[in-house]
Amino acid sequence: MAVDMNMKVLIVDDYNTMLRILRNLLKQLHFENVEDATDGTMALEKLRGDKFGLVISDWNMEPMTGIELLRDVRKDDTLKHLPFIMITAESKSENVIAAKEAGVSNYIVKPFNAETLKSKLVSVLGEF
């Protein structure tokens, strides 16, 4: 199935510069319908209020972290199948395992490049 390039993508990070970087890189990959949130709570609110096709979230945020957001998403009947990519500087294997156990779709370690972002998007959404 072809990827809907108009789908809404939610990017979540407490660093505004990172949000801007992600937005610009996604735009270069032709995903222009991008919304952002600066922590898990705000993200969850947005996810419950609209229809999104993908979440790309940082881990280390306050008050609600990325892993907590992921667990809440997977617990929510209407959101549980939403593709969720964790993008974080937390690179320890225990982090990756915890994220996998919580149901993450893929995991990107910061610093990352556009090629890695694209390959993870393809692995989660399919070729575009």
Partner: peptide, 14 residues
């Protein structure tokens, strides 16, 4: 070039 600049800007987050 612009992609490279965006990637490099990630230093601020790290």
């Amino acid at each position: 070039a612009t992609t490279n600049i965006y990637e490099a800007c990630g230093f601020q987050d790290i």
